[in-house]
Design a protein around this nucleic acid. Structure first.
Lengths: 323, 323
DNA sequence: TTGTAAGCGTTATCAT
DNA sequence: ATGATAACGCTTACAA
């Protein structure tokens, strides 16, 4: 920048003003632009933020379970879309569902001066983030709410999703509906169970399911077995799909999964679809609103889920017997 | 840091030395650590990089087609794994296959002072990166080679992949094998075609396929139609899968796809699998080697692909007629 | 509108 | 081994 000033024959501050397009004499500005072009000058974002009153770095940090997981990478994409429109770059990191790693990432991102943080919580106590927030770094939680901290949160409508799924099965005549859920300590798992409570058969609820295949075999072996299966999580749905196929029961037992599975239309599985891109977009919008000075109370936005009915849930309640 | 120095009763430089664990008197170091803890001090990475002789920021930038695409998010994951082990954070951005956007991102990342860049090329002239490289920022290309620039590159074995796929089909007795490829201007598309040339029937080669379903209908309608299909790209494979299913031909026409499809085992489709996580890891390793001072000539590493044989390619060459 | 100079948080140089 | 001080590239009072 020094060199640009010299070449353009103006002062440092004038160059700074041009670069930040403040008001400067058009003719001087022209000289500066020319010098910038000739020298291939580019402003150093880090140095700029260092001195700037708002200490802004034009970057945000995203912490998810796993950046390689398609659900979270779609979230990342949504966030990027709105960040890009404001010229903001995004860091992303994987917590691998570890509270410690979440804290390390948040700390690293802060040390790098991010302007805001979007976090898919792994920790069960987020008070450690009070410091960042006090430093003026807004934080938005995504997919699951924070613990012991009040902050903006963007969630999928888990409850509405499984309720719609269960009602869909009930209206097809099913009375023996099973629910296969993830680890009970996972917030979304219990929400999804809550959504279908009262419709699924209490004795057919299985939580902490790690292997959908094993769970489905066990369930089909109970005295009055389910005629329909509601899976609370993607991985479980996939395990169930394989097991049902192996047992030759794919057309006999109705199935609804939570979270769309890839090639779902080909496989014909009915699902409750989430919209991870929208999740990321809303989170970014909330974040930038805060950065723009919005200091209203913490908000919670719930993104609707959508039931996509496909062939696999069409098996009727009596098809097993009639086979 | 000033405050830490005051509280610990030492000079600024001593605190700096402690933070960067240079040699300092253990008792002073203890006082500093205590002050750091009490004050919740954290070093400002931007300011540190500003003054440091190597200007390092402990961050790298990744430019891919789309951060939300599972293939690229797996790449991101691979990169993150090795970056994390060195305490390096990663920016990621989507070029959306636009040369302009690629340049903007590279420029943004540089302005933010990244220590290195991993790029999935969208542009067809990468000389614009010479400036970054001159500034000491190493660049590694991934998935496709750079144009008009020599630099480290990490590639999948596209040629070996389609060759193995074609040979697999030929050894099953197929002589009429079709190839459905992506836009010919895409480097990987022509590589994959090159790999199976001599085995696929020249009159059954279709490039620039955007809709696999339409292409397969057209191909099955020629005088001496293919008994086997080799798809050069994921999206095409999926389109073909749907079309074959609709036509009721899924067990009559053999099919091999490039790049694994989700739920591939359930659907039973044979594929040439890539290893995107390994791609990301190798790219990161190359990058850090350069950062560590390796100045040997540009390297090219080719990551093997793997043929995963599943039911769908088992249809014999005569099954259509015998049906 | 423009220039001068101070200062952001840190590391590097150079005495001590 | 430690401390004083300049400097990194930039923004921002404040003065002109």
């Amino acid at each position: 920048m020094k060199d640009v000033a010299a070449l353009a024959g103006v002062s440092l501050s004038t160059v700074s003003r041009v670069v930040n397009n403040a008001s400067v004499d058009p003719v001087l500005a022209g000289r500066v632009h020319e010098a910038v072009r000739r020298l291939g000058y580019r402003r150093d974002a880090a140095a700029a933020g260092l001195r700037r009153s708002d200490r802004a770095s034009a970057s945000v940090g995203l912490i998810v379970d796993d950046v390689g997981n398609p659900f979270f990478s779609a979230v990342h994409r949504g966030l990027e879309e709105v960040a890009r429109s404001r010229g903001v770059l995004s860091f992303a990191g994987s917590s691998d569902d570890s509270a410690r790693r979440e804290r390390e990432l948040a700390s690293s991102f802060s040390a790098h001066g991010v302007d805001g943080l979007v976090i898919v919580p792994a920790a069960d106590d987020h008070r450690y983030l009070e410091r960042e927030r006090a430093a003026g770094v807004p934080i938005v939680f995504l997919d699951r709410p924070p613990r012991r901290l009040l902050a903006d949160t963007v969630l999928s409508d888990n409850v509405g999703g499984t309720r719609a799924a269960a009602e869909h099965l009930r209206s097809a005549g099913h009375t023996r509906i099973a629910f296969l859920g993830d680890r009970a300590r996972v917030w979304t798992a219990t929400e999804r169970l809550a959504g279908c409570r009262g419709i699924v058969a209490p004795d057919l609820v299985r939580m902490n399911v790690s292997d959908g295949g094993a769970a489905v075999r066990e369930l089909l072996d109970v005295p009055d077995p389910p005629t329909a299966l509601l899976c609370g999580q993607n991985r479980i749905t996939i395990g169930v799909l394989y097991a049902l196929r192996e047992l030759g029961l794919q057309d006999r037992v109705a199935l609804v999964g939570f979270d769309d599975v890839p090639l779902g239309a080909l496989v014909g599985v009915t699902v409750v679809a989430q919209d991870p891109v929208a999740l990321g977009r809303y989170a970014a919008e909330l974040l930038f609103a805060r950065l723009d000075g919005d200091d209203s109370p913490p908000r919670r936005v719930v993104v609707p889920t959508r039931l996509i009915v496909r062939a696999a849930s069409r098996a009727g309640p009596r098809s097993r017997r009639s086979a």
